[in-house]
Structure formats: C-alpha cells, structure tokens
Nucleic acid binder design. Structure first.
Lengths: 148, 148
DNA sequence: GAATATATTAGAATGATTATAAATCAATAT
DNA sequence: ATATTGATTTATAATCATTCTAATATATTC
C-alpha cells in the first residue's frame, strides 16, 4: 500500500519534470512510511544515517517542491515547527494539546461548507483545512494522576 | 455592538483576576474594532501613537493573557506571523491565497465532526479550527488581467 | 506610606525557515 | 568520452517572529 503511494508520488514528480534525486526519494519514502507527520528537522535527523552530508536546507527545499507538486501538505502551528503530511484521501487531524500528537481520522470532505463559504464571500475556493483539538487518552490519564 | 464586546471582555478579565492596564485596554479595543485579524506587530504599530514607549513584548504577553482567558484566538501560518482574532460567535475564516486577506463567514459549529472525531480517536475534544482557502474577487480580476 | 506583587520595558536570545554562494551532480551536445 | 549547461545540494549566514531576562515602573495590600 505505501509502496503504491511512493510509486504514484514518483510518477507525479516524473510527469511534472522534477528530477528524482536520492535525497528526494528518501524524504518521500520517510514521509509516507512515518505516521507521525514529521517536522523538517525530524526528517533531517532520521536521514542522517543514510545521508551524513545532507543539509537541512535540502529538506526544506524539497518539502517545498513536494508541496508545489501537490504531494505534501504543510501543517503550521504558532509556537512549534511545521509538520508535513503526505497527501492521501479525505482525512483530517486530531491534535493533542497535551503532547502534540497528531492522529488522522477519516471523514467525508466538507463540500457544503466550501460551497457555502464561496457563495457568501464571493471567493473561488481551492481547499480547506480542519483540525480538531483535544487531549489524548495518555495525557488524560497522566493528568488524572497529577491531581492526586 | 463592539462597545458591548469590549465591556464583556473587560468583565471577563475582571472576574478572572486579570488587571486591566491602559495597554491591555488599548490592545483589546483595537482587536475588537479592527476587522483585519491583525498580527502582533500590526497591533504594536497601530498603538505606537498612543503608547510611544510600549514594547512588542507587551503586545505578545497580553495576547497570551487574552488567549488564556479565552477572549482571543491565535491563527497560525507557516510562513507569516500569527493573526489574532477576537472570539465572538460561530464563525470561520476564508483566506485569500493571493493577498492574504481574511474574511469571516458564519456557519453553524461542526459539532458532529467533533463528536465523530472524539469517538474514533478516543480524545477528549476541546475545540476545532476550520479554514477555507481560495482567491478573492480582486485577485481573480487582477489575475485575469495578467493573462493578457 | 512601606512592602509586595504584577506589568512593562528594552534588548538579548532562541529557533524555524530562507537566502546566498560555492561545489557537486546529471543530461545533453559536441 | 568530454565539455557545457542547468539543476541540486551543501554549508553557512541572514531573517524574522516570538520568547526570555533583568531592570524599572506601576498598582495593591497591609
């Protein structure tokens, strides 16, 4: 399954005329395999073994290339670093405000909201972003302990 | 109407035990009056006349105070500075990817999504954030001209 | 009014991201 | 094969939003 995603992604790059370098291959692969929506720095550190000379700038550069090719979405936060999400089908993010964990959940796209918003504002709509914030089980439990 | 909002906000602060300083009053007032969802720096610059000695840190500090009191929401973006939104009733944001403009639109809260997400992930849900991205009329028109 | 707590200020520090310039690599034409 | 050209990577410096720190000022309590 993730092999298919990788293959599709590489095809997309090829048809877009983006050269597939070893670094790009590795970054994509890591993005697809990891379920953690990593930051640029996490990707950088994870690939240190394979590419001891790789620069952080390369990670950022290529994440931008992937974003422009529509392969990757950037999830931005105020305080902390952006996280990068390989684009698959309709899913949204549940974010734990205790530990920062991000969990995907599938939900049908909110097309009616897009249409409504477009109608009211006169904008041409491209996309939308929905995130739900809460506290995960682990954090709920450790918070319970704290109170004692 | 905005006077009521200001009064409510000041009441909230008073009951929360937050001291109302001239700077805090001015920042709140500006947030409520301005429809532009300003950045911290915009607020800082806007109040330079009234408070020539005010520090940017004061703006940030107090925006955090307001956020913790539930009066203000922070809208974060990857590249650019956070924007701050005075909390009123159910509304979401339409964001122009051409010029960065933010337009509010009212829409009933997506409670069923929150419930669904909570059920699926086991998180305790606090809130959610929805943004719709698109292109505003002005940018659509100027893009049309560009093509010629 | 003195003592104490809270806010503000000014400026330094942090940390994510981007820009720059040099070095390396890939592709194509010679 | 080799030279040429353009794209990619690297290393490092620069930028910019935000936070931290220490000193000063302001408000509150006794």
């Amino acid at each position: 399954m993730s092999e298919l995603h990788l293959k599709d992604a590489l095809d997309t790059l090829k048809t877009t005329g983006v050269r597939i370098t070893p670094q790009r291959h590795a970054i994509l692969e890591y993005l697809i395999e990891s379920m953690t929506h990593p930051t640029a720095d996490e990707i950088y550190k994870a690939l240190e073994g394979k590419f001891p000379n790789m620069s952080v700038a390369t990670v950022y550069n290529n994440l931008r290339v992937f974003r422009e090719a529509g392969l990757v979405k950037e999830l931005t936060y105020g305080d902390a670093a952006s996280r990068f999400d390989f684009v698959t089908n309709d899913h949204y993010h549940m974010i734990c405000q205790g530990c920062g964990k991000i969990v995907d959940f599938h939900y049908p796209g909110l097309n009616e909201v897009e249409q409504f918003a477009s109608h009211v504002t006169g904008f041409k709509v491209h996309s939308h972003r929905l995130e739900v914030y809460g506290t995960c089980q682990e954090c709920l439990e450790s918070a319970g302990k704290q109170v004692l």
